[in-house]
Nucleic acid binder design. Sequence first.
RNA 1: GUGGUUUUAGCUCAGUUGGUUAGAGCGCCUGAUUGUGGUUCAGGAGGUCGUGGGUUCGAGCCCCAUAUUCCACCCCA
Length: 453
Amino acid sequence: MKPSIPKGTRDFSPVEVTRRTYIFDTIKRVFQKFGYQPIETPVMENLSTLTGKYGEEGDQLIFKVLNSGDFLSKADAKKLEDRNSKALTFEISEKALRYDLTVPFARYVVMHQNEIAMPFKRYQVQPVWRADRPQKGRYREFYQCDADVVGSESLLNEAEFVCIYDEALSNLGLNDFTIKINNRKILSGIAEIIGKPELIVDMTVAIDKLDKIGYDGVVKELIERGFNEQDVEILRPFIELSGSNEEKLQVLRSSLRSTEIGKKGIEELETIFSYLSAFELKKAKVELDITLARGLNYYTGAIFEVKSNEVQMGSIGGGGRYDDLTGMFGLKGVTGAGISFGADRIYDVMLDLNLFPESAVISTKVLITNFDANAEKYALPILAKLRAEGVNTELYPSSSKLQKQMKYADAKRIPYVILIGDEEIQSGQLTIKNMISGEQEKLAIESIIAKLA
RNA sequence: GUGGUUUUAGCUCAGUUGGUUAGAGCGCCUGAUUGUGGUUCAGGAGGUCGUGGGUUCGAGCCCCAUAUUCCACCCCA
């Protein structure tokens, strides 16, 4: 049979794993610097834990795991007879692959509430799965790098998220990216002013597309979603909001002064910006964007999204505050806020921009050639010595033709080759070749160690 | 889930209105060079043309189904 892998999944070869590890490590280091601690959760959750958390569309994108054993005989005969897949799902599947890291984290917090100290700051870097149709930058298996804090209302957390994005992405070499920030309460305030608070989701979905379909497109969609011409006129200044963050806030302050929730949202944003003024950002641009509405419906306060300005790509990160995430698991009144990095998309962006350091792909530093059984025996203690000094070293495992061994070193981009033949064994002076310059010299093992370690 | 697109050697791709034995570049292997890779030269191997059906005297090319790639929606990292 011809081997293949499921749609939307990928193999990662050594170079890619090295690069991905570099991304993960860079992000993790920043999380740790801000006081976040790692946890891990199972790849599978109970299906009931996940359903209903991501909306109806989200539920469809959850990969369900078939029950073990003779699951069909235990299933409801009527539902089976009706061939009703939706109704049958819960009869034959009680586990599912995790869809994101936030809901499993909420579950974790509730289950471990007695062991964790609030505020609890955790980070988590693990794969998630979505039964989506793959495209560029969209996979069915991909990694999320999440940092969330629960049990702290302080907007300092939000400000620090901006710093985390800035530091991590700057460290990865991105030069031009924008952290967009908005507040769900402002969107609620706008919906309130229009007098259609129940249509807030339709409103946000429509204005979120401003970038893509333009103002006229947004208006068309708003009308389709139940707004009239008057509503659109009220909305217009919000959608066309421009200028600096301070200028935008000023406009919002006056137009939202009649709504309590809107005012609260502005206040929160002001606090975040005020915190941010105490920090110096490296490369990030921070932009108040009223059209930013993406993300899950459970956001209640700040909303974040990060986009690269150098490469055409979907968002490379997102997050926000959710006031009652653990409520659905029975723990009320615990507020949370978090952000996520899309490592796979960051990888694609960095590849496009050629940002991976060359050193990230070197694995072996020196190869010892294998002339014959005698030379191999002579090389073993040298091999051990180099490794003891922390030098990544390998001995070619068989006495193949030297040409083959050199080719191997070249293909693996090993920068040094040590040649040991009868001559070297007699003199104790080993030949070391620099594969980049092509130069070679004879050195005692101590000098070689000094050179490589 | 809707609409379109891609698939030919290990990789990137040619392949004419359906017509003899399906090609190129790169890579790989062997030798020139039994102690030297990356350069050069000579030679060589490698293909059920994504898969399964169908039309035809004849299919890489036409038709149907299916998988896969990428793209636009929907939604999202």
